[in-house]
Design a protein around this nucleic acid. Structure first.
Lengths: 348, 348
DNA sequence: CTGAAAGCGCTTACAG
DNA sequence: CTGAAAGCGCTTACAG
């Protein structure tokens, strides 16, 4: 099982040094090493004759690249529930990795002593065995991300991330713009008073949606008051709560998560109101995959496959040193989907 | 980025040689190396103090393990169509790899000069960079598999595979038993003449189903004649063809693929027959994921997640040398699903 | 029970 | 334009 050709075999056959072969096969000819065209040809001939392919481990160890990109997720990559949230990202990443000549390493053995998925274990960076990594997941650890960035480890986060004390590279989705667009559509239908119902906590995605809401209200001359923005878990979105909103004059809501939307929908039903005739709801995202889109929600969809592709490209830009200097960030547009949960406001 | 502790740091701190540290941290103590409990404790203390974790590349290069399992597929892992055929396998593999302390390397950069996915490129085994690999995919290359086996490379195929000239390890699904069970069910409903409609070609899975069919017929005293087994692409399953089968006295069919089933269903409809009242159909497998199970087919489901789990376990058994000697094979039972496409035969 | 040393197959200054 | 040599961080016979 150990009879593959080595660099030295190729060098001997070509009658050159290993340094020359290395330079030729890694295409680093031209950097600060020059090899004559004729020598190069001899090297390639020898490579072909031996069927030589570099040993990835040796290459990495010696400080070279191994053409492997890591994928680290703060949640299981292939979860049992939410069956394929990461799936479209992976489709994009596989496609682009293949196109650019990289393999993909899924970091699965990343449980730390506390039972949490973690980049560092026993104080050491598990991602070191690949050239660079793509990170995903809602439950990120800012501490780790900061340390990773400060160590100079090349990575790209899928999803906008703010890390106190530093800047990191990411490929995100423009939630703010999509939220703004939904507001405009509702205003065009005649709405003049809309409420934002977000998730508790202040994750980046939620902040972006809120900012989009504020911006959209400003653009459309909609009033914003202390009632306009609330953050509630689904079980707090009760019939009583929805009645209050109706009493406050709201004719529609922009709601962040699918389960919150569902809660609002059912609560309205309980108090005898119908969506969208009596009240409009726009979902600020898309249902989880294991939900069917039961109400035909008006919502927006993030371009997950494209985000995967762009993340790979951005990472490889970093690896090639083109983007070494400062973190790069990118926001991709979400696609608004016209469903059946918004309509002109009720006149009663 | 290069300031992690090395083996030598740990050794110095613990006051032992690198060989000792290596033996301790790789748990190879007890093999042919003995280290006193006290020394071992000193080593672990030093490891903790440094936050040492071995460099995966160095470990591989030196001939050790890197705790990475490769996944090689003869089709794209994350295909655009048949959206998640591999997905349940991956769920199982991720789960088990995590449990057993392995990462997963997806070989994506595997296109050879002919534009085919291939293990060998320029005569070299791309899988060499991991401890062992799990292979999947319908369009396997027997040549490659034989060579891989003969080189002694540790791998497990997901799906039964016959390789001329050698034996390989696999975790498959027992298509024959499931087919036999479907026949019994149909016979219990009163059927006495059933036809097997397979796919063209003689892939392992198709052969297994055919064998199950023959066995089932034998078990249930069903006649088998030259008309009983046909192999046709979907577009050859026409109304005319189905009429012929009715004329031949067949009251039901066991059909391999979803598209063939659909063709039969529609053809019967065209000639005024209803499934299952006039003719029963059992699908010998499950619809592709991007199909809804539109007719509520009677069929069987392969335990893909469990197959993924078992494949990882089998591979790791091979790696630990327990199963070094001869290839291991395993068939997992499929689950028959009672749908609405079989019924007692029509009496007309 | 433990250590000194060779070697895995590369890359990369450093000389020429 | 090219080569000799050190070194990446491990594992593994081989001595003791």
């Amino acid at each position: 099982m150990k009879n593959r050709a080595r660099l030295t075999d190729v060098a001997r056959l070509a009658g050159v040094s290993t340094a020359t072969v290395s330079a030729v096969v890694t295409n680093s000819v031209g950097t600060n090493i020059r090899v004559s065209a004729e020598t190069r040809q001899r090297v390639w001939d020898a490579v072909a004759q031996w069927g030589y392919v570099a040993n990835a481990a040796a290459r990495t160890l010696a400080g070279g690249k191994n053409c492997i990109l890591g994928i680290f997720t703060y949640e299981p990559i292939f979860p049992f529930q939410h069956n394929d949230f990461f799936y479209p990202f992976l489709v994009g990443m596989e496609k682009e990795a293949e196109a650019l000549g990289y393999h993909l390493l899924l970091f699965t053995n990343v449980m730390n002593a506390n039972g949490l998925r973690s980049i560092y274990r026993d104080d050491t960076n598990l991602l070191m065995m690949v050239d660079g990594s793509i990170l995903l997941g809602l439950n990120d650890n800012k501490e780790e991300l900061r340390r990773l960035q400060q160590e100079g480890y090349p990575f790209v986060y899928v999803g906008r991330r703010e890390v106190p004390g530093t800047e990191i590279s990411y490929v995100g989705c423009d939630y703010a713009a999509a939220t703004r667009e939904l507001i405009c559509r509702m205003v065009n239908l005649g709405h003049r008073r809309l409420i934002f119902i977000g998730v508790p906590g202040r994750m980046e995605g939620s902040i972006d949606r809120e900012n989009g809401f504020l911006q959209g209200c400003r653009d459309c001359d909609l009033p914003v008051d202390p009632h306009s923005i609330v953050r509630l878990p689904p079980n707090a979105i009760t019939p009583g709560f929805m009645q209050e909103q109706l009493d406050l004059g709201f004719t529609g809501a922009l709601i962040e998560m699918d389960d919150q939307c569902q809660a609002a929908f059912l609560s309205l039903q309980t108090i005898g109101r119908t969506v969208p005739q009596d009240f409009s709801i726009a979902m600020l995202g898309q249902p989880h995959s294991d939900w069917e889109n039961s109400q035909d929600w008006t919502m927006f969809i993030m371009p997950r496959q494209e985000m995967g592709i762009q993340a790979v490209r951005m990472l490889i830009r970093r690896l090639s040193g083109v983007a070494e200097e400062k973190p790069e960030t990118m926001l991709l547009a979400a696609k608004v989907v016209e469903g059946k949960t918004i309509a002109p406001p009720s006149m009663r």
